[in-house]
Design a protein around this nucleic acid. Structure first.
Lengths: 334, 334
DNA sequence: CTGAAAGCGCTTACAG
DNA sequence: CTGAAAGCGCTTACAG
């Protein structure tokens, strides 16, 4: 069975390939009669355009690259599901496809395969921006439109969508301080991510506004895995005396923290208060249920995707950003 | 800044584009000296090949289409994360990219955009196969290599990877029957999915092997959402008298079921035993923790991806399949 | 309203 | 060991 191309259709109908192309795209008016014959031939031959050829000819791919987390994080990250759902829904609506990349950065970034090719994408969505993010640098250098989910280092030149993380952590710390807590451990993310700076800033500001001070030793940097949260926190319990509250950078870490607290017979909320961030299903079903910062992940994904499409299609040129309000959902852990 | 193409590099070095292509791909030996000059020029010009042009010329895209669930399911489906992680890891290792499609099927399947184009993919991974699956039919018709994650209707002509769901549900029902339960509600998935048949088969076989019978009214079909599980089960509690156990088709549904049971003051496991499937983090942190069927989602994804690459690269031609053993993890809910 | 033809940027037989 | 050229299957100015 020979391949059915636009040429096959053109021959069958007795017109040029150009006419078939125009009839199908609607970019030029083709007479009703010819169009009908073309459509009939397309149907009979079961012709389906080669997207690859179309991409090359039009230098437009209708594809967006999504740069996500490392896979071991994806496995435990419910927050990701919701961001992803928002992205998929909007891009589907706008007729864009998704090319999914996980983060596989290592020492030899230079040889990273994804970075050494011009991927066939019209734009990129970058999650979890790092300080001096290699992906962002690469994308910028290649002049590919992009939107960051999170707050990038170079705010002036970037479009981005983020939750107001600083305000969120300010609210969380403030809430605990007002309840009388003075020594709050912050289980922050890895220092390489810009979000970790934002969290610390909110936390610090709450102490400051209440005329109190904190110690940098109360702030720990951990990987995004439950086991990691558990291990690091088990040590923290020994090494940081007399703390009375914990704020974590996501729900998964909170699960690890709560497991360590249970093991050490430190009742929550009786002796220790815990606040997480993410407000995923986990926080509702955990016993005790977990007070958590809601950051509207679905909306973040959807807004970022919308913004990206606007940037790709040049409806937006000047860098802009959207900051989504967060709110604290109180549950049993505080 | 003019675009840097293979022609730019060739001119700069004083060789043909073909030579540059061969030097870069290694498909033909190019002298050490020329190769070095080419590599130097590539570096200086920051040349990066156009994948789109390469795709068209070689009719190979190094891209796999992943047909996933509807987004509202993805939002609540932790199982998906693990399958996805397995897929991503293997495909990254094998140098394939991922094109992600969510399921947006509706009545007018014919006009489904994803189905009316030849997507630039070398192969497809299809999750949650339906009975008479439109995606599978489409992919088969286009002669695109594919692997189903789950068990497709047409087993003879398909490659697929699945957990032994029938054995798993047999084990779950058997376990409950041996504990004295006689009336077990099966919260099954939507009847359009092939997996729902497998679950019912395992459940039915357990009754049969124990010389007992069940009633079809004890088997309910629900959508993959926590709220749905809750709503449907709340009604079931009224309408199905004297049941003593429940098996659900995933962890999320179990959460809904347990919420309904709690609301109706039916203690678990005191009065009702509950078994879920998926064994995601949810089952460990729920109170009570949930006995669950482990189905190794990461391995399923990884094995399916490996198989697909073998099929694409013609190391496997004859349809084959891998069935992964399941095992029941006992927790507090039984 | 429609066609002939150049062009997108590669790869890969065909020649030497 | 290397080059000239056809070809992948479309789109889109350029002409009429």
């Amino acid at each position: 069975m020979p391949k059915v191309t636009i040429e096959t259709v053109a021959k069958k109908v007795g017109v040029s390939a150009a006419t078939v192309s125009y009839a199908l795209s609607g970019k030029r008016k083709i007479s009703r009669e010819v169009t009908d014959r073309i459509l009939k031939a397309v149907d009979e031959l079961d012709y389906r355009p080669s997207i690859t050829a179309r991409n090359l000819a039009s230098s437009k791919t209708w594809t967006v690259g999504l740069y996500a987390s490392p896979t071991q994080n994806i496995r435990e990250d419910y927050f990701f599901n919701n961001i992803l759902a928002g992205i998929i829904d909007i891009l589907h609506e706008k007729k864009y496809q998704i090319h999914l990349y996980a983060d596989y950065l290592n020492e030899d970034n230079k040889d990273h395969p994804d970075l050494n090719m011009t991927q066939p994408i019209d734009g990129a969505l970058i999650m979890n921006p790092r300080i001096n993010d290699v992906y962002i640098q690469h994308i910028m250098q290649r002049n590919i439109p992009f939107v960051v989910i999170g707050t990038p280092d170079e705010r002036e030149n970037s479009f981005y969508v983020d939750a107001d993380i600083t305000a969120g952590y300010y609210a969380a710390a403030n809430y605990l301080i007002r309840k009388g807590h003075r020594k709050i451990i912050l289980m922050n993310g890895s220092a390489e991510y810009t979000q970790s700076k934002q969290r610390k800033a909110g936390y610090a500001l709450a102490y400051q506004d209440n005329g109190l001070s904190f110690n940098n030793e109360w702030i720990l940097n951990v990987q995004m895995l439950e086991e990691e949260g558990y291990q690091v926190f088990k040590r923290a319990i020994e090494e940081i005396p007399d703390f009375s509250a914990v704020i974590t950078f996501n729900d998964t870490i909170a699960v690890g923290v709560l497991r360590a607290l249970k093991e050490k017979n430190l009742p929550v909320p009786g002796k220790i208060a815990v606040i997480s961030a993410g407000n995923t299903m986990i926080t509702r079903i955990h016993a005790p249920s977990i007070t958590s910062l809601d950051m509207s992940p679905y909306d973040m994904g959807a807004k970022a995707a919308e913004l990206l499409v606007d940037v790709i299609e040049k409806r937006r040129i000047q860098p802009s950003h959207t900051i989504i309000q967060t709110h604290l959902v109180e549950r049993e852990s505080t």
